[in-house]
Design a protein around this nucleic acid. Structure first.
Lengths: 190, 190
DNA sequence: AAATAAAAAATGAACGTTCATTCATTTTTG
DNA sequence: CAAAAATGAATGAACGTTCATTTTTTATTT
């Protein structure tokens, strides 16, 4: 494998397993089967590796979610399939969730840009705007609607990964998607 | 001030400002106006200080939220006042939110006990159970209901602290509380 | 094909710094 | 003045980064 990718993959694994606090260059190198100095051929330093990985994951996530979007579908259909893709993304690549959460909440740690925190919300935000215009989604402040979509997604994944619930159980995901839709949809459009 | 408290207060300030990554004993001591060695009179070491602070904040939070609960009020009223107290707790002590989030998402960093992550949800969980029994709250899986309460709370505070919305604006909090209630309440009980 | 040379990639020991923790000494308390 | 509390310099381990050296790849010539 490409050494640059091996390094990024190694960071993802280590951060998920041990947290940022225990991450160091020696471990990254060992896990990637590379010499410590090699990391500096591909990245400026430790922070750069971490920022690069964050950008990669956010791009992947947004692509996954946007893949579900189609102009031809109703807002409700788009909502369901985008939420589904978001859930699947996190379930299939569990490490991504843990990494993103840790990165997001580490203030002024590595972030080049504060707004990067919310890049993740862009696809959902777009769909929400459309729903409001079509009077399918409640006329609530943007922040409240965002919180009603992004918040539950985050928490349910957290609960699933901590084995407090099991999203793989039959019908579990559908119940969740429906509950989220009902939370933001105008009653007659449920 | 009591030196033990000064040390905890210092950690809270530093973690919120710079993150766990940049926290060190020298800074804790300086900020608390105490010698480095003094910390070891009150705590076993760095991890112990951090765990102690976490437990303190969670206890405070649960107390604040439970203070709003009353047997005499309806589930809806209890929900509103508990959610209100949770929001106020985080807005009045902004540092607490940042600290808890960072702590929660650092896997195996300092945590003595994985389940500590969810201690925060206990008061909400109790109230939810009662609402289901009284057929006021939708009969959804516990995890889905939890995600619809805890999730939006988390996200709206995050958005507020990042200045993406302003919960101090008139009516903003009420809109949020109502939206959260509508998300979990049975239609006729809204 | 084989041999050679030049360039690029990779290595890991060494360096300087930072950090958590200790403990002999000093200060404060009762 | 004895006991308790507090100090902060000293210690040794850990870490990010550098760079002289080695290995691999690519290009060129025989």
């Amino acid at each position: 494998m490409n050494k640059k990718d091996a390094i990024l993959k190694s960071v993802l694994k280590l951060v998920t397993r041990d947290g940022f606090y225990h991450l160091n260059m020696k471990k990254i190198a060992e896990e990637a089967d590379v010499a410590a100095g090699t990391i500096y051929l591909y990245f400026k330093g430790k922070e750069d590796v971490i920022n690069a990985l964050y950008k990669l994951i956010v791009t992947d996530f947004n692509q996954s979610v946007l893949k579900a979007y189609s102009e031809d579908k109703s807002v409700k259909e788009n909502f369901h399939s985008m939420l589904h893709n978001a859930v699947e993304f996190y379930l299939n690549e569990k490490d991504n969730f843990s990494f993103i959460e840790q990165y997001t909440y580490a203030p002024f740690l590595f972030k080049e840009n504060q707004d990067e925190n919310f890049m993740l919300l862009l696809p959902i935000y777009k769909m929400m705007k459309q729903g409001k215009k079509e009077h399918v989604i409640k006329n609530l402040p943007d922040a409240v609607l965002l919180s009603l979509i992004h918040g539950p997604l985050n928490t349910i994944i957290k609960l699933h990964l901590a084995h407090k619930t099991d999203l793989h159980k039959k019908g579990a995901k559908q119940k969740f998607y429906n509950a989220c839709w009902e939370a933001i949809a105008i009653e007659s459009k449920i």
